[in-house]
């Protein structure tokens, strides 16, 4: 059983700030983390490895500093890690990213068959949930998105059974490997590797592939050129032109505040008053 897990190093978006004048992102001091959803994917792959044996390879497309994220995955128990990194990738949108990743995964397949590919449900920076489906389509793998649980894998029969979150319920799906799974959050918890894993991770020789090594012959397929979408503008959300109308009473006592507020809201929004009355009565 060989699983490939796609992970991405992302800025902890809780700590991103926007420059008030230039509207650009101020990244200084913003720590980089592994996209939290990808950890669910990795853990699921590791669990299958515990059950069935086999190998887990993690892969990411990103800048050289993404190495730290890969090492962390190794310390959790992944066997091998590949960083695909090239200036030519700069500006890739999801279509170009899935192209590059699928090319690299094809390259991996030259050495070892890939039975399962795992991705997170989505990233917290790009937030598109498109890269996973993109990779599946390009490799012609069965696509299973929003998987909440891998119920069973039968390597002999090449069969896999999963629970998938759908609108209004859960689908129990059966399909055959190879396939690509995008994992939902909260499905499992990341393990804590032992000391041997840490040593191995710290010493592991990462593979770093540039564009050609990742098996991408045509530079037009990645980076800005390979991206049909073009970002034409980035800006901070506009503050609403008007600040809230503040309700104040002379001594700030809650009762009077509440009564004053109600009077004001209902005078200015008579329909709302009727609406509330209708529901509450």
């Amino acid at each position: 059983m060989h699983s490939v897990v796609c992970i991405k190093q992302v800025p902890d978006s809780a700590q991103i700030r926007v420059h008030p004048v230039t509207n650009t992102i101020m990244r200084q001091g913003v720590p980089a983390i592994i996209n939290p959803y990808d950890l669910f994917a990795l853990e699921e792959a590791l669990r299958l490895k515990d059950q069935l044996g086999g190998t887990v390879t993690v892969i990411t497309m990103g800048p050289p500093m993404a190495e730290a994220a890969l090492r962390k995955c190794l310390s959790f128990g992944a066997d091998d890690a590949i960083l695909i990194s090239d200036r030519a990738f700069a500006g890739s949108d999801t279509l170009a990213t899935s192209y590059a990743l699928s090319a690299a995964i094809r390259k991996i397949m030259e050495d070892m068959q890939v039975d399962l590919i795992f991705t997170g449900k989505q990233t917290i920076d790009g937030d598109t949930a498109q890269v996973g489906p993109g990779i599946a389509k390009r490799l012609d793998y069965q696509l299973l998105t929003y998987v909440s649980k891998v119920v069973e894998v039968n390597p002999q029969k090449k069969e896999i059974l999963v629970e998938r979150r759908a609108e209004g319920g859960v689908q129990l799906l059966k399909t055959s490997t190879p396939c690509l799974i995008t994992m939902l959050e909260g499905t499992n918890e990341m393990r804590f590797g032992d000391l041997d894993d840490l040593f191995r991770a710290a010493r592991h020789e990462l593979k770093v592939w540039n564009r050609e090594q990742a098996g991408i012959d045509e530079a037009e397929m990645v980076g800005l050129k390979g991206s049909p979408t073009v970002v034409s503008k980035v800006f901070a959300p506009k503050p609403r032109s008007k600040r809230a109308e503040m309700i104040e009473v002379h001594d700030g006592n809650p009762k009077d505040l509440a009564i004053t507020l109600l009077a004001k809201v209902f005078t200015q929004h008579p329909k709302l008053e009727q609406e509330i009355a209708k529901r509450a009565l």
Binding site: D125, P228, V231, S232, P237
Partner: peptide, 17 residues
């Protein structure tokens, strides 16, 4: 669309496709 967890918005176009 929002990006970076909603801290920013960006406008995106598909021009050639």
């Amino acid at each position: 669309r929002p990006t970076f967890g909603g801290s920013l918005l960006c406008t995106i176009m598909t021009q050639r496709h």
